[in-house]
Amino acid sequence: MWDWAFTLEILPTLAKAAVISIEATLIGFVLAAVLGLVLALVRIAIPWTAWPISVLVELIRSTPLLIQIFFLYFVFPSFGVTLDAFTAGVLALGIHYAAYCSEVYRAGFDNIHRGQWEASTALNLSAWTTFKDIIIPQAIPPIVPALGNYLVALFKETPLLSAIAVLELMQTAKIIGSETFRYTEPITLVGIFFLIMSLVSAAFIRAAERLLNRRPAR
């Protein structure tokens, strides 16, 4: 049932594809983290944007990522913006998770005590300095675990890129399967790879959580 020689033969190809999956994860997550922060900050800085932004976030979170990927890949060219498959996929991942991340940041900022703002005003700090030196250093550490969970979630969504033929792990496994008529080894290996990566990153997140909690309380 399980062919070890075949497993060893396809392993290097899958490893190469795994690099693309990880690349997509990292670029997508940086995009999500930055865009999410921008959304959260705009929402605080310009009050009237709160309602449109929350509708936008709700829209992004209530529709499937696969459809959003198709939307970027198939619909944008009709507006004259043609993206290659990898860019469209990573952009969709980034935008989708930015919606989730913005809610995480918002929770982080909401948890900062009002007194911190008032004390900064009393010290005559500008809004930007208050944000940079007072609010963000206190708001970010508690939300690192939540962001970490989204990093793992985003990683597990990368097989969706196979639907627009990005040669990541899943697409490569599918191609190997269709060429050799053996799906057992490639797809099981992909599953094992995701399991290992998720468990390892979960351990990292827990370590980061412990490290951050060691800092003195406010």
Binding site: M1, K156, E157, G177, T184, I187, G191
Partner: peptide, 23 residues
């Protein structure tokens, strides 16, 4: 819990769809 949370939903679907028939 660990297996189904640790792997991707699409991989699980493909496993059930392509690999189970081989068993």
């Amino acid at each position: 819990i660990e297996i189904f949370r640790g792997t991707s939903a699409l991989v699980q679907l493909f496993w059930l769809f392509f690999v189970l028939p081989q068993f």
